[in-house]
Design a binder for these strands. Structure first.
Length: 822
RNA sequence: GCCGAAGUGGUGAAACUGGUAGACGCACCGGACUCAAAAUCCGGCGGGGGCAACCUCAUAAGGGUUCGAUUCCCUUCUUCGGCACCA
């Protein structure tokens, strides 16, 4: 008999076609079943799938296929984050339309994903560049505008004077334009913002809900990013009597203020006439933000000549302009306490400003003349009026209370988080649905006029400015309010807007409402989200923000969109992340062609656990292929032994058959456990390899007896289904070869019998003073007393123990006996 | 600078709740099959010592807790990631 070859290309094509025909992964609302929503971060259609995608989506596919076998109603959609800069760059370079470029990329990448056998419900596909998707971006924008969550304000952006365009931060690295190398400046532009800061406390509170199911690392990064700090707003006064409020987290040092510093952008500075000061301000302002905030940037400042009065002690101090003070945080001005703040100390030394000690350590008093740096620790307040003698940590509270009582300050919470600027002076994005009318001002596009369609026939003229600005047919409109001539907003939205709610649109991608209620309420929230750690703050924070806004609008039931999050590691080769610039990219297509999709999937899961980085290894891929071939050959060789119907009588099994059966049940147990509890697929695969080794180790004659055939049949019935989530085409083909009537995708996950997972004999160790002296095989049902007895009977142990005082004996059942002697 | 994660054979890694360190794979070495090679199958594989049964050292380094530590605690070093004038 000739054995059937493992012809992976044919097998994979066959099953992909069959799943497609049978719509095996089409998700339908079924309230009698528990749903499970598995989602992987959707890709940007850059042209080709890379190994990072393969890894991400393979992990997702394991979860989806396994949950399906466990009886869940699984929802597993895929789509395209298809607006963004690369399409425009390609357009400028090759003079192709971004729409065409993007559509072609999607077509190709979709065939790649299909070739990998992922279990997506393609009927749920979304593409953010399609009007039927982005009209709801615009709709949400209008809702947010209504609620005051979208607003317009002037803010500064990176600007290239040569290219006459705005640059993203990553395009203005080192303060130089990426295209023309000219120096990037800051430009004030009127831009749209989302008020994410209104949700800062909500976003923080939500962390409690997802803590334990999200990586702590991600939660910590988000907390730092939001940067909530509590402190006191102190109302200093200018000589003129005007209020001059500042924010501080160290009210306990307020008596030590010896100068104040104000941001160069602060409006108060308009009244300064001193040319030296004006020159300083304009110089700092032309520095890019990157430049101003870069590493080791020296703190610079200049005395404005203005004086500020400290409301606590009436002292009059100088007001400086400083390049390090940010207009966007707090009040744009700070009080400076050089005695107890590192940065203030350096500034004071540089400009010969006095230093004052207001917190001291009585055991080792500070000496002003000897101080080489600020003392930032705790201590006792000195030179602090009625607070002198109070412990500094208590003084924070007491001074805040005093300030509130006397109307010279109030407790305040500040956030590092800023409102989300969403305007992009770019073509390939979702148009912002507003119209500017000379008479009526800013007018929202009426809902009935949505979507504002982005023209796809465009001419880039080889430059980076948005073609929209040159298209009167787009910009010239009638004002929806007065009917007069008006012009359309030509800015588009940040693409992070698109990806902030796509997970919910998947539930009803073709609905003529934002969501179909039945679908969205059944499927949301996402039970398991999988993606790269690089999205820890931006995407994952924006998506949570949108989910909360949509919840407040009554459109989503839950506030948190992603119940569980897995952040997978990078794919590494030769010690670096796979990337075009490093030239260490491995093309998935080539590997699929050479070894098949199942081998690629298997290797992706076997080489390391999902959360860790994965080292690409050509030899490792071969190893994965070898394992599949081994299983294939064994199964094909013994195919005729398989019985459709059988009942195993344990009494009739030989010892070898019993052992094999135990290995089988152990494999089912541990593979289930690794998938369900640990999401650690490398060890699950290792278990399956061990079972395969056991199959090869058993004497073939053992399989050819009556009971041998039954044990073999049980191996087939359990082993092939547990391989299914990992190598679905491979498993389906074998299953069919063994006469499986239903496709494996519809087969239940195998059960195991706990009593059959216990090996007859186990190895225990005897220790003396914690050191292993003897190892011994014993029956697995051995009692503690017997273990103890055997330990003392062991000649080696007794040699070391006799004549000595036995301090104690520790017995761990089934593991070890440790005798402690003196 | 601050915060966080990690450091285990030649190598990717495993050890789940403090209980036999190195499962499983790769590489390498040896054997079988073959005219030969590939493929495949079998065996070996942390270091040092011993003919040997065995002894001994070993999870970045040092210390601690414990009968027992890769696992918990402290210090140091290294690597990676995040934040970085946030008042």
């Amino acid at each position: 008999m000739t054995e059937k070859e493992y012809n992976f290309t044919d097998i994979e094509n066959k099953w992909q076609k069959r799943w497609d025909e049978k719509q095996s992964f089409a998700a339908r609302v079924d309230k009698s079943k528990e749903k499970f929503y598995v989602l992987e971060m959707f890709p940007y259609p850059s042209g080709r799938i890379h190994m990072g995608h393969v890894r991400n989506y393979t992990i997702g596919d394991i979860v989806a296929r396994h949950k399906k076998m466990k009886g869940y109603n699984v929802f597993h959609p895929m789509g395209w984050d298809s607006f963004g800069l690369p399409a425009e760059n390609a357009a400028i370079k090759n003079n192709t339309a971004p729409f065409k470029w993007t559509s072609e990329n999607i077509d190709y990448m979709k065939t790649q994903l299909k070739r990998l056998g992922f279990s997506y419900d393609w009927s749920r596909e979304v593409g953010t560049y399609k009007p039927e998707y982005y009209r709801w971006n615009q709709w949400i924008f209008l809702k947010m505008l209504e609620k005051g969550l979208a607003y317009k304000k002037v803010s500064s952006v990176n600007w290239c004077p040569e290219c006459m365009t705005v640059l993203a931060n990553e395009q203005a690295e080192n303060g130089v334009c990426w295209r023309c190398d000219s120096e990037v400046t800051q430009k004030e532009l009127d831009q749209w913002f989302f008020k994410i800061t209104d949700y800062a406390d909500d976003l923080l509170a939500g962390h409690d809900e997802i803590s334990g199911t999200w990586p702590e690392q991600v939660i910590t990064m988000q907390k730092n990013w939001i940067g909530r700090s509590t402190g006191l707003k102190v109302n200093f006064k200018l000589e003129s009597g005007e209020d001059f409020p500042i924010f501080t987290t160290r009210p306990d040092t307020v008596f030590g203020v010896t100068f104040m510093v104000i941001a160069p952008e602060h409006p108060l500075l308009d009244r300064v006439t001193d040319p030296k000061v004006k020159e300083f301000i304009s110089r700092v302002k032309t520095q890019s933000m990157i430049d101003r905030t870069s590493e080791d940037k020296e703190k610079e400042g200049i005395d404005t000549g203005l004086k500020v009065i400290n409301p606590f002690n009436g002292e009059k101090v100088s007001l400086y302009v400083g390049n390090f003070v940010l207009m966007g945080y707090g009040t744009g001005a700070i009080m400076a306490v050089p005695g107890h703040d590192v940065r203030d100390f350096a500034f004071a030394k540089k400009y010969n400003i006095p230093v004052k000690i207001v917190i001291d350590t009585p055991a080792d008093p500070l000496k002003l003349e000897e101080m080489t740096g600020a003392y930032t620790g705790e201590g006792v307040c000195v030179n602090s009026g009625e607070f002198t003698g109070v412990n500094s940590s208590e003084a924070i509270e007491k001074i805040a209370a005093f300030a509130e009582k006397n109307g010279i300050g109030e407790r305040m919470i500040n956030y590092r988080l800023r409102d989300w600027g969403i305007s992009r002076q770019r073509y390939w994005g979702c148009p912002i649905p507003v119209i500017y009318c000379d008479k009526c001002g800013t007018v929202p596009v009426p809902e009935k006029d949505l979507p504002v369609v982005l023209p796809t026939e465009v001419d880039f003229k080889g430059d980076a400015t948005s073609p929209l600005t040159r298209m009167p047919e787009f910009t010239n409109v009638k004002c929806p309010a007065c009917g007069g001539d008006a012009r359309r907003e030509t800015d588009t939205m940040d693409t992070f807007v698109d990806s902030s709610w796509y997970y919910a649109r998947y539930t009803s991608p073709h609905s003529d409402k934002i969501f179909d209620e039945e679908e969205v309420n059944y499927w949301m929230s996402v039970d398991q989200y999988i993606g790269g750690i690089e999205h820890a703050v931006m995407h994952l924070l924006y998506a949570r923000f949108f989910s909360m806004v949509l919840n407040d609008l009554g459109l989503l039931k839950n506030r948190e969109p992603f119940k569980k999050l897995l952040t997978q590691g990078m794919v590494i080769k030769d010690g670096a992340k796979m990337s075009k610039s490093k030239g260490n990219v491995v093309d998935p297509d080539e590997i699929i062609k050479k070894f098949g999709a199942d081998t690629v999937r298997l290797f992706m899961l076997f080489a390391s656990p999902p959360v860790k980085d994965l080292d690409w290894s050509d030899k490792g891929v071969e190893g994965s292929y070898r394992f599949l071939s081994r299983v294939w050959r064994f199964m094909q060789k013994h195919k005729d032994l398989y019985l459709q119907e059988y009942t195993i009588d344990p009494e009739l099994l030989s010892d070898e058959q019993k052992k094999l059966r135990i290995e089988l049940h152990r494999t089912v147990k541990y593979v289930s456990h690794d998938i369900e509890e640990r999401m650690q697929y490398n060890t699950a695969i290792a278990r399956m390899m061990e079972l395969t080794n056991a199959l090869y180790a058993i004497d073939e004659d053992e399989l050819y007896t009556d009971s041998g055939k039954k044990v073999f049949s049980e191996v087939v019935d359990k082993f092939i289904p547990i391989m299914n989530p990992f190598v679905p085409h491979f498993a389906e083909e074998l299953w069919e070869d063994f006469g499986g009537k239903t496709m494996l995708v519809d087969v239940k996950w195998p059960e195991f019998t706990e009593s059959l997972t216990i090996r007859g004999e186990i190895e225990i160790v005897f220790q003396v003073n914690g050191k292993i002296k003897t190892k011994m095989n014993v029956p697995s049902d051995i009692t503690e007393d017997d273990m103890k007895k055997m330990a003392f009977e062991d000649h080696k142990v007794s040699e070391l123990v006799t004549g000595k005082e036995i301090v104690k004996v520790i017995v761990v059942t089934g593991k070890l006996v440790n005798i402690v002697v003196k």
